[in-house]
């Protein structure tokens, strides 16, 4: 695992945050996990705005885990804006949501998500999912350099 790669978790439910962190931990994923609580904050972080203004813009996370049902700006809109911006358009975004609605799936893929993972109720399954996500997106996946 590349410890240097930051994973951005966009999740308003503290239980889910905690469980996600636990799953990371359980699966020995030691990457830095930045948690933001709503869509607006997620965008602020990504584009180094507001409270994240002092952040280096070019230090983008290696993976964004994005919930759909979010306060302020929902997950679909966040994804859309990520894809709309030149700087972030190649950013791997995995939708991690409770929703099993077909409409959510379709819309997410339309907006350009890289994966869509439904959070299972069974923690064991959830943990497995997180492990596979980490393995795939952080370790195996290659993406073009944003700067170039």
């Amino acid at each position: 695992m590349e410890n240097s790669t930051v994973i951005l978790l966009v999740e308003d439910n503290p239980d889910d945050v905690k469980l996600t962190l636990r799953a990371f931990e359980k699966n020995n994923i030691s990457n830095e996990l930045v948690v933001v609580r709503d869509g607006a904050e997620a965008l602020a972080y990504l584009f180094a705005e507001g409270e994240y203004a002092d952040r280096e813009l070019k230090d983008l996370p290696g993976l964004v885990l994005l919930d759909l049902n979010l306060p302020k700006i929902d997950g679909h809109e966040v994804l859309r804006r990520i894809r709309a911006d030149e700087r972030t358009k190649f950013l791997p975004v995995v939708i991690l949501t409770t929703s099993t609605e077909e409409s959510d799936l379709v819309q997410s893929y339309t907006n350009g998500c890289n994966s869509y993972v439904q959070k299972p109720v069974d923690f064991q399954q959830f943990s497995d999912a997180i492990r596979q996500l980490g393995l795939y997106w952080v370790v195996l996946n290659r993406r073009p350099s944003i700067q170039s």
């Binding site: 239980d15 949501t97 959070k119 064991q124 959830f126």
Partner: peptide, 18 residues
């Protein structure tokens, strides 16, 4: 239901497991 009803269940399950 799809979104919100299952989240608590996941918490219940997850933390019970924890």
């Amino acid at each position: 239901v799809s979104h919100d009803l299952r989240s608590p269940l996941r918490s219940i399950d997850g933390f019970s497991q924890a």
